[in-house]
Nucleic acid binder design. Sequence first.
DNA 1: GTTTCAATCAAACGATTGTTTAATTATAAT
DNA 2: ATTATAATTAAACAATCGTTTGATTGAAAC
Lengths: 233, 233
Amino acid sequence: MEQNTKIAAKKRIFDAAVSLFARRGFAAVGIREIAKKAGVNISMINYYFNGKAGILKEIINECYDKYYSAILDTGGEKTPLEERVRYLTRNMVDFFRKNTELAIVAFSTIPVDIPEIIDLKIKWIESKREATNKWFKTLGMDVKNAPLMCVIRSFLTSIIFGFVEAQYCCDHIVQAPAMPIHLQDHFKHDDHAVVMDDSFYKKYVEILGCVYLHGVMSMSKKKGKKRSKKKRK
Amino acid sequence: MEQNTKIAAKKRIFDAAVSLFARRGFAAVGIREIAKKAGVNISMINYYFNGKAGILKEIINECYDKYYSAILDTGGEKTPLEERVRYLTRNMVDFFRKNTELAIVAFSTIPVDIPEIIDLKIKWIESKREATNKWFKTLGMDVKNAPLMCVIRSFLTSIIFGFVEAQYCCDHIVQAPAMPIHLQDHFKHDDHAVVMDDSFYKKYVEILGCVYLHGVMSMSKKKGKKRSKKKRK
DNA sequence: GTTTCAATCAAACGATTGTTTAATTATAAT
DNA sequence: ATTATAATTAAACAATCGTTTGATTGAAAC
């Protein structure tokens, strides 16, 4: 068996699983459906991934690797903060756009029955904790301030992921051919009818970056220092 | 059969389902498990709810009813905007805290195989669209600006829900007795070790309200008017 | 008391589930 | 060519799934 074809079968399974899990959820998709979509026999799931959970493990590893690459790339320290915020926002939006299904699966699946997956996720998050804290300190955040960090830490991820997931739902589930036509008419107005091309996302990134900057800087010690001068009487 | 006991059986099923669905997901939880937890026979699911999907339908209706009550209660029009933002933020945080499991199930479950549920959700969202737009106009948002509205529309919900869901996961899944002990040690520092009591949430609301106000007002036509005066030469 | 209606139960049904196993086929190495 | 290894297949397994059905029990109405 040529390496190319070997890789192809494994990859086909992976891609089929990502797509199906994203639309339907991990628990609702069976290995027979994945195998059928990938054009392989069901035993291949076990052979290549050691079972269904193994697919999920690889999804999580690939997604988190890409995710943390995106969020930890915040530009040069000499760059003005405004530009860095914009740069980061763009990185993250790009990440979620390019890896929508991967992210939906990895971020939304919490398989309680499979502790090793929970373990894996926790390890990823913990291993990147200090690195992400560095960025928040750059923003002037007090990382020991618990309620503050609960707002700020996943700010961009929550907003972008929430939006991208909703769009995915709209495009691939509600608008999917299998869905009754009358439901598809619901999205023919306002932001739902907008062509979300690169131009749209450029504006989205600008706006979000601005909201993030202004919102977060209202909590920043860096900005707070400026104010403290005025308050001293 | 007394009405009290009748209500009790149906409610026990509902509550058991909410709890199980929140932890494990709709597709992963079977009716036998729900019936066992509720202390009834499995046929009761069909009797009271016309099947598993019926439970989900009632969960969605109850949750969305409460959710929209919360987000549409934005205080009096005579009240200063700052206070209204704080008021709304508190409403929403309270809603998600009090109805965590309900919200997780209703917001996270997208049963592709059950178009009537998709339909129901869409109807809820569409029926409240104009009412929610009113608030955004109050904020000075241009509701026709698609990328702007894609940032602003679900801003608070994304952040609060994301946070509350993560805490639920931490408290009820990772920290659950069935989870191997070594995983539970991961959350003994920083914001994860904080007692999230009313005092914590009071600060959380303050901070989030402030971030929201400053972030959103950076995009507001109301604030924009003030600046336009200075720009005129 | 009897009859009717509501609530509950257990059994059955056809279908599906992920994992395992042994056989077969394809490919690589000699 | 033969042998060894990798990839693939089909069958089997034990378990589970949600819905349906008819029987039984409990409560209300008369």
